[in-house]
């Protein structure tokens, strides 16, 4: 599904140039659950952002289902995100002004489909993560775990082929973290491809493969022995 070839990302300021990623080669096949681990600042989130097309590589190739999208026009990338990707963030990124149901519906806001279908999908997604009873509440009225489940509902409402999760349990306690991981595990079992950045070895264990990074490079890639 995803092929990254000799991918790099550098940030240049007036005085210095920082390499966030250098020479990354990574392939993710459909149906995989990949966990990316590594110390803070090693480039995990940058890599995830590039995979999610909300950041661009400085160099190298990024093939998504065979098409090189490293330098694709912004409009094409927006369409790709709209139709095929789902995002889950550590800090949830829910919009305070909208209710939970409206936040979830935002996942379909830029797609054209009948209103009734949108409504059904939103209800199904909320049901799926167990927050249907909170649909009229605003984000700040919910616990962290509930907010993250709402964020997952928003990510899956569009039925994406690839779900990108950036430390989805980072802001949660153990119990809520476990619940979120359960949901991600189920989604993967149902066929979704998942790439997740995490600091937690136990959560990485749930993934089928763990990629270790250091200083912008991939150190190792190990498949879980079932």
């Amino acid at each position: 599904m995803i092929h990254l070839q000799d991918l790099s990302r550098t940030y240049a300021s007036d005085e210095i140039e920082t390499t966030a990623l250098g020479g990354i080669d990574l392939a993710v096949e459909a149906g995989e659950f990949v966990a990316i681990m590594g110390p803070s600042g090693c480039g995990k989130s940058t890599l995830l952002n590039i995979i999610g097309t909300i950041d661009r590589p400085t160099d190298g190739r990024y093939l998504f289902e065979g098409a090189d999208i490293a330098r694709a026009p912004e409009a094409d990338l927006a369409k790709l995100r709209r139709d095929r990707l789902g995002f889950v963030f550590q800090s949830f990124n829910l919009i305070d002004e909208l209710t939970i149901a409206e936040n979830v519906a935002l996942g379909l806001a830029y797609r054209s489909m009948p209103a009734r279908e949108k409504k059904e999908r939103v209800a199904a997604a909320m049901d799926r993560v167990g927050i249907a009873h909170r649909q009229r509440h605003h984000p700040h009225q919910l616990s962290g775990g509930q907010q993250q489940r709402a964020a997952i509902a928003r990510a899956i409402v569009g039925e994406p082929r690839l779900i990108l999760a950036d430390e989805p349990t980072g802001n949660l306690d153990t119990e809520n973290g476990a619940q979120v991981m359960d949901i991600l595990g189920q989604l993967n079992a149902e066929g979704a491809t998942i790439v997740m950045v995490t600091h937690s070895p136990s959560h990485a264990d749930i993934a089928k493969r763990t990629v270790h990074m250091l200083d912008g490079r991939i150190l190792s890639s190990a498949r879980r022995v079932a």
Partner: peptide, 16 residues
């Protein structure tokens, strides 16, 4: 910013 960024993540183009 967060709202706008989130909208972009969800596939909104700049034109939209």
């Amino acid at each position: 910013a967060r709202e706008i960024a989130m909208r972009k993540v969800l596939g909104a183009t700049r034109g939209m």
